[in-house]
Amino acid sequence: MIKKLLIVDDSPIARKMLKSCLPKDQGFEFYEACDGKDGVEKYLSIRPDITFMDLTMPVMTGYEAIEEIMKHDKNALIIVVTADVQMKAITTVLDLGAYMVLRKPLKKEDLLAAIMKAQDTLQKVQ
């Protein structure tokens, strides 16, 4: 079951928006990180089921963070949440090993569908 969710975004508002799009009754545990470096560290200590990752962040970008996390855990489920929706950005993160890309502003339906898909993938892996 998906339980631990890590949200990596430098904007507290963006983190809040993402949380608000998720159902309250599923018993999710939320963890937050405010840049790529913080994200990698939290990933390694928490080992979340899903990581939501913004791309443009100070200190370490989302691109670098994905690369770093994938080095440690090739099964990591990273969902990129970004305002940059150009094809180039999307193909780059998928090549780096991201699980999928969601566009900002987030829609509840899209987010739920993504989590359900991740749930299936997770079960298959286990």
């Binding site: 508002i13 970004t82 305002a83 940059d84 150009q86 502003p105």
Partner: peptide, 16 residues
């Protein structure tokens, strides 16, 4: 912060 986030989204879409 909200305005900043909206701007990020708006400009991301504009670029695309």
């Amino acid at each position: 912060e909200i305005l900043q986030e909206i701007m990020n989204i708006a400009f991301g879409k504009s670029a695309a």
